[in-house]
């Protein structure tokens, strides 16, 4: 017993030292963070080819992969993409179109979102840009989790198929602050279960929770919006964030809140260089 307590205390002491050291270290750049995270996963999950991280837990489990291949015979998001294309082409209240709000008419640009907007000093996600476009042209914003917003986003993502994420943190202290805040949201423990996003999606990536294979954070945003069998329909990244918050017994934050947008900014930056694979499907 004594030796166990002594061991416990030793662990505690060592941890305290490393904690102090970690906090005292200087901040890392977004690029250093991305390289460190991608290197960590390469070490943790050596069997996964870099581009395969975009398929999430499917890349880690042969049984899941078989299920996924079956699902992808008739992708469950096809209807959403078609519906989203229709919506995208319809005029808004003042006669303008979504295409007028985006670079390149909104085609092939998914990989550049989220973006930092120098005018507002805020992070703009694809979904928040779609809703901002609607409001600017006299329409009401769409509900954030599913339905038409997920459909338009699905269509826009489909036009970026194969393009690689290229999210920028411009040389602006506000952009770096937003990125850092997203990093905090990712690494801060929350909820009664005391998990951070990283507790599961970094530390436990590839492990089983009950029968569920925990997906890595790397490539996680790539398939969104996504059809999840547990939902039985399409959902946005915000929907998944809120679901995760509920699972750790925290109160979800408002959709498209600054924290969620910053979290998406951080997460997507971490996936820079990986291909857009949205819309996607998860068994």
């Amino acid at each position: 017993m004594k030796s166990m307590i002594a061991a416990g205390l030793a662990v505690l002491a060592a941890a305290t030292v490393s904690m102090t050291a970690a906090v005292a270290e200087t901040a890392t750049t977004p690029e250093q963070d991305r390289v460190a995270l991608q290197r960590l996963y390469a070490g943790m999950l050596p069997g996964v080819k870099p581009d395969d991280f975009v398929t999430g837990s499917v890349a880690l489990d042969p049984a899941l992969r078989t299920q996924w291949e079956d699902i992808m015979q008739f992708p469950p998001f096809t209807f959403a993409v078609d519906h989203g294309k229709d919506l995208f082409q319809q005029p808004l209240a003042d006669g303008k179109h979504y295409a007028d709000c985006f670079d390149n008419g909104g085609v092939g640009i998914r990989q550049t979102y989220p973006r930092f907007d120098e005018k507002t000093g805020q992070v703009v996600t694809l979904e928040s840009a779609i809703n901002a476009c609607r409001v600017e042209h006299g329409d009401k914003p769409l509900a954030p989790y599913r339905g038409d917003l997920a459909a338009i986003s699905a269509y826009m993502a489909s036009t970026s198929e194969g393009k690689r994420f290229d999210v920028k943190v411009p040389d602006d202290p506000r952009a770096l602050a937003a990125y850092e805040d997203g990093k905090r949201v990712f690494y801060a423990r929350r909820g009664q279960l005391n998990f951070s996003c990283a507790s599961c999606h970094v530390q436990l990536a590839g492990k089983h929770l009950r029968l569920q294979v925990v997906s890595p954070a790397l490539g996680m945003v790539s398939q969104f919006p996504i059809y999840r069998s547990t939902w039985g329909e399409m959902g946005t990244l915000d929907r998944r964030f809120s679901e995760c918050f509920e699972q750790v017994r925290a109160m979800p934050l408002p959709a498209q809140s600054e924290e969620y947008r910053n979290l998406e900014y951080f997460l997507t930056y971490m996936s820079n260089g990986l291909p857009v694979a949205g819309p996607g499907a998860q068994p």
């Binding site: 490393s18 904690m19 970690a22 906090v23 270290e25 890392t28 250093q32 963070d33 460190a36 995270l37 960590l40 990093k183 905090r184 690494y187 801060a188 423990r189 929350r190 009664q192 005391n194 951070s196 990283a198 970094v202």
Partner: peptide, 23 residues
């Protein structure tokens, strides 16, 4: 009690999250 501990967790995590960052 739950509300109190949730606030306490939030306060602690304002700095503690940094120890979890992958470097």
């Amino acid at each position: 009690a739950l509300a109190k501990v949730s606030m306490q967790q939030c306060e602690e995590q304002k700095t503690l999250w940094k120890q979890a960052v992958v470097r």
